[in-house]
């Protein structure tokens, strides 16, 4: 199992330099604004905004394409029927099949929103190491329990993945062919998953002991000073970028409201 998520996290670009917690606020604002867009007229604007941000991030285009391929097919399959099913204005008629304007419009809005949100979230999570993202989320007030669980699960994801790969290998060498669907195979698979759970559980017990021995859960008396954000010169730039992005997001929302009401 390859977790290729940190592959381009160490490039240098304005987006990479943008501090992760500020980036989270800014880009999440943008993502939600995109989700709100209804008006066709705004679609070119959000495409251009997305394009600029992606260009600034210096992530390779091939990376974006490779990440969009699988979910892209999925969304196309979902919206494929809409132009034929929804609406009254007939654009094109071919026997029983009628292509309708309103359906096409809804499909276009969904597809554009989808690709823009995905691209922005790729920029958000692809331009910083995953650990910085988690730290950023913590400084934004994500509960400590969830932060701890995310970090631990992430840390052991690859290891557990390796465990299941090796076990599947060992089964294959003893002649197990999982390409058939029968009761016995389901049983074998259940045992494999069960063993995985048991082994993860046993590992977690040892991890917990090791964590306790290194002071996990011990609250030093002056913990609050760590959480304070240090404002230096760079930090003003980070804040400015966030404010700019949020203004774009708010602007988009305002425009969308304006066009919808009109």
């Amino acid at each position: 199992m390859k977790l290729a998520i940190d592959r381009y996290a160490y490039l240098d670009s304005p987006i990479h330099r943008w501090q992760q917690n500020c980036k989270i606020v800014g880009l999440l604002g943008l993502i939600f604004a995109f989700a709100f867009i209804h008006s066709l007229i705004l679609l070119p604007i959000i495409i251009i905004t997305t394009g600029i941000i992606f260009f600034l991030s210096r992530l390779p285009f091939s990376y974006l394409v490779s990440r969009l391929r699988y979910p892209g097919w999925f969304i196309l399959a979902v919206v494929f029927l809409l132009p034929f099913m929804i609406g009254e204005t007939i654009l094109f008629q071919w026997g029983e099949l009628t292509l309708k304007l309103e359906g096409c419009q809804i499909a276009a809005v969904i597809v554009v929103r989808f690709f823009c949100i995905l691209t922005i979230s790729l920029v958000l999570f692809g331009t910083a190491p995953f650990l910085s993202t988690i730290k950023g989320l913590r400084s934004l007030g994500l509960p400590q329990v969830i932060v701890d669980m995310t970090l631990l699960a992430y840390r052991y994801l690859e290891e557990v993945g390796e465990m299941v790969n090796t076990m599947e290998r060992a089964m294959k060498l003893r002649g197990f062919d999982k390409h058939y669907f029968k009761y016995r195979n389901l049983q074998v698979l259940a045992r494999l998953i069960g063993s995985l759970l048991v082994r993860s559980y046993e590992k977690s017990t040892r991890i917990y002991q090791a964590m306790i021995l290194r002071g996990y859960g011990y609250q030093p008396p002056s913990n609050k000073s760590q959480k304070k954000l240090v404002l230096n010169k760079n930090h003003y730039q980070d804040l400015a970028a966030t404010i700019l992005t949020l203004s774009i997001a708010l602007g988009l929302l305002g425009l969308d409201l304006f066009f919808t009401i009109r």
Partner: peptide, 18 residues
């Protein structure tokens, strides 16, 4: 699948699952 060759894994827990 070649039953004439067997591999004993370094960690027996990788092999035992029943």
């Amino acid at each position: 699948f070649r039953p004439e060759i067997g591999l004993v894994f370094q960690n027996p827990s990788d092999q035992l699952f029943c």
